[in-house]
Nucleic acid binder design. Structure first.
Lengths: 197, 197
DNA sequence: AGCGATTGATAACAGCGTTGCGCTACCCTC
DNA sequence: GAGGGTAGCGCAACGCTGTTATCAATCGCT
């Protein structure tokens, strides 16, 4: 069989796109190199040429997920009031996660068994948290928030939203609990908890 | 080849134990029916007779995880001061999760691709949260906590600890961030946030 | 004691990620 | 313009996976 074209940057994107679709539609189990290659009209070997292996394909998805995530987070318009801004950022965080649940799962829970994110994980994750960190750092410096190391506050806030979102995505929340309303309430109380009394 | 014995309740336990060990040692990817059966000295078919399939084996692990978790949580001695008790429960929660990280992952993140917990999930999860829920319900009823639906507070507190623990288990936390000390600080601030002003 | 049901050992199936082989289309140099 | 090096990638095979049909052996029950 002949080869259609080489150095097909297009192919790379098509594989990445389709991989995202597959994983978004039916979860990580549904992402098989064979199916992926067949869908795109190539062979599994292409994935090895272009990415290095399945793990590296997932790694590319991981990066893409953070790109989208970071863009959404940085789009939030901040008011200057730290509590209000923490709420806004928290809401955007949830919306981002709900927009691509399976990408979120790749980023923050180990949803693809073979894949262990590289060292860049923490860095990339923290870079995404830049607006959050900035807001908190300022609030602490201004004496509006408690005099606690800003990292502690940042991680606490991040953990809070991550926890709620990931419970929601996993279906661990009770039936009668309507997330959207309670989420914001909880967010506001948590943020206000860091205010100096 | 003959068969050694039948109705071997012991075999069931050995399989379950070994499965837990395998998954705890090297993660969900390392749990293969063939290796499991070989280690225990039986064949893969036994898993199908005794559990129904790999999914159901994982489901049994899931249940076992909640059993251990619930026992640890209910062992916490409560002081009556809601903030203090929320901290104690939060600390116990983290210790439980760190004791069996992979079981925790089965319970709360979808670490085994095929496995979708049944309807009993939410129920079993919520049952585990009984001490937490009790403490909060009382604090709200007594007017010590803000007048917010207790479920909202419960889910918020649960999400908070789950989020921090799962970020920690996934290695998403910054290097310099020392969890054990910051965790308790954050826990206390969060709990105090629910106090009536 | 003997019958029926259940356990589980064997072996086969389909599908998976991965890899060696080799063809082919491109780029570079002459 | 012609020839050689290189990289993309289709094909086929390997060893692994979960699952299942077949069937022998053993149990509980009458």
């Amino acid at each position: 069989m002949p080869r259609p074209r080489t150095h097909d940057e297009n192919l790379r994107l098509k594989l990445l796109d389709r991989a995202g679709e597959l994983i978004s539609a039916d979860g990580p189990k549904a992402l098989s190199l064979r199916k992926l290659a067949a869908d795109v009209g190539t062979s599994t070997t292409a994935v090895y040429s272009l990415f290095g292996g399945k793990t590296d394909l997932v790694s590319a998805l991981f990066t893409e997920g953070f790109r989208r995530f970071g863009r959404r987070m940085s789009k939030v318009t901040l008011s200057g009031d730290p509590v209000e801004d923490l709420v806004r950022l928290g809401v955007a965080y949830r919306e981002s996660a709900l927009a691509d649940p399976h990408l979120y799962a790749i980023m923050f829970t180990k949803s693809v068994p073979g894949f262990e994110p590289a060292e860049e994980t923490s860095e990339q994750a923290r870079a995404t948290m830049a607006p959050l960190e900035g807001t908190i750092r300022k609030a602490v410096a201004d004496g509006v928030f408690l005099d606690v190391p800003p990292e502690v506050v940042t991680v606490a806030c991040w953990g809070f939203v991550h926890g709620l979102v990931s419970l929601e995505l996993n279906g661990n929340l009770p039936e009668q609990y309507t997330v959207s309303t309670a989420y914001e309430t909880a967010l506001r109380v948590n943020a206000a908890g860091w205010l100096r009394r």
